[in-house]
Amino acid sequence: MITNVLKLVIPSKSSNESFARVAVASFVAQLDPTLEEINDIKTAVSEAVTNCIVHAYKESMGNIYITVQVIDNLTVKIKVRDNGCGIDNIKQAMQPLFTTGGEERAGLGFAVMESFMDKLSVKSKDGKGTVVTMQKKLSIRIS
């Protein structure tokens, strides 16, 4: 059961990278996650949002739609969607170290999302946009 929802729409300005990850982290904080869990989520969101800015809306500006769902007060499901250029070859894009972002990009965005979250799925349509969905189950805290 979905027990809480956050919806956020921000333009693809790089100065919003920090805001997006902090906003999601503050929303998730009410579930009392561990510091490591909150950092994992923050890092994964930062990667997904950066991909929208660097790749999806490369030469343009567009909206980034972030939805966070809390399921049964325990699982966090995060969707990051754009209406950008889309990913040609998702398999290749998800390969660690593969990048079209130039010298200074490590090509590790999806690798971080995959390893810091429990589930990751990427759907994309050429010229229409991309949806990244990731999920993490928090550890049960004894209160």
Partner: peptide, 12 residues
């Protein structure tokens, strides 16, 4: 805080 942009920074 650091995301994978920091990796690019260090590798460069």
């Amino acid at each position: 805080f650091m995301d994978s942009s920091g990796i690019g920074l260090v590798m460069g």
